[in-house]
């Protein structure tokens, strides 16, 4: 009986679909064209710029072939900033996703005041970056910043710390700030995913006598893995592109480019050193590097998609 209905629906579907075959292409073309104007076309232009000697005020702009890329390979600062970028990204992605997951698990339980707590945790997401930076700088002021009050509670610390000027603290602080700003988003999305896990799975597990930890390990995590992966990707994007939170707090310092990510380097090179060609080269190269990561994700996403629509 059910099979017959399915068959009928299938026929109908094929029939209707034939008239709408071009629909997906029309929709997608619309979006691609829109993105092309604002993103793809400009990027193509930047790609061309990376083969020129376009430095503002240099006598004549001309093609220089691969010279900028040769410079790139000898540029220790570039490679160092790639390293910094990946360190920063790794900590922010892992930090934001795991903190988001933990708080989502915590706040998925039933308790009084749950909604208040959920709202409270999500506030940093709504908080503009520039505001976050301003108050963060104020808190980390070595002379009268409130962070000193907290730090001095730790035994052994009797002096105010130098915070962002301290080479050991600068990177952790910037990472902490970034996670603070980013994890509420992962929290919200993961919380949503948790609520979408079918109750029956847990009920069945209860019947089988599975412990809380086992339920988490064998039901919850597998069910929300696609969401966790999407969050990991969005957080890599967030951290790779992050500019404001780093530039306005450490400016890449305190010295030796300890916190200077690729985006900061691009900005410095193009907008402060006026070297647009090399700025474009850095940008294109950074882009190629993260493209690898993207491909990996899409591959995984596709496999999972196929499994779902099987």
């Amino acid at each position: 009986m059910a099979e017959q209905v399915d068959e009928g629906a299938g026929l109908l579907r094929r029939h209707r679909r034939s008239r709408w075959n071009s629909l997906p292409y029309t929709l997608v073309l619309l979006i691609v064209a829109y993105l092309a104007v604002f993103i793809l076309f400009p990027i193509a232009q930047q790609f061309l710029t990376s083969f020129s000697n376009n430095v503002v005020g240099v006598d004549k702009v001309q093609w220089v072939g691969l010279r900028n890329y040769e410079r790139l390979f000898e540029d220790d600062d570039f490679w160092f900033s790639v390293q910094v970028t990946f360190t920063y990204m790794a900590f922010v992605v892992v930090g934001a996703v795991s903190l988001g997951l933990l708080s989502a698990l915590l706040l998925n339980r039933k308790f009084r005041g749950r909604n208040v707590a959920r709202s409270a945790i999500a506030v940093p997401w709504a908080f503009p970056e520039i505001s976050a930076v301003l108050v963060f700088l104020w808190m980390c002021n070595p002379t009268f910043g409130v962070m000193n009050v907290f730090a001095r509670l730790i035994p052994g610390i009797e002096q105010n710390l130098n915070w962002l000027s301290d080479p050991k603290l600068a990177m952790p602080l910037v990472i902490a700030l970034s996670i603070w700003k980013a994890f509420p988003f992962t929290f919200l999305v993961i919380l949503a995913a948790l609520q979408a896990v079918p109750r029956e799975l847990y009920e069945a597990a209860d019947v089988d006598g599975a412990t809380r930890m086992q339920q988490l390990r064998y039901i919850t995590i597998p069910e929300i893995t696609p969401t966790l992966m999407l969050m990991a990707v969005l957080m890599s994007i967030f951290s790779f592109k992050q500019f404001t939170l780093i530039w306005l707090t450490t400016g890449g310092g305190p010295y030796g480019g300890i916190t200077e990510t690729l985006v900061l380097r691009i900005y410095q090179t193009a907008f402060r050193f006026f070297d647009l060609a090399y700025g474009a080269t850095l940008g294109v190269s950074g882009f190629v590097i993260v493209l690898g990561l993207t491909l990996l994700f899409v591959y995984a996403q596709q496999r999972q998609d196929r499994a779902r629509r099987r």
């Binding site: 005020g57 130098n162 000027s165 301290d166 080479p167 310092g253 305190p254 010295y255 030796g256 480019g257 410095q268 402060r272 050193f273 006026f274 070297d275």
Partner: peptide, 21 residues
Amino acid sequence: IFFNQEFGNVVMDKFSEVLVA
């Protein structure tokens, strides 16, 4: 004078190490 900021960045970067380390 044409590369003032780039020049300055090298100096500041090294000098910051004097200051904080």
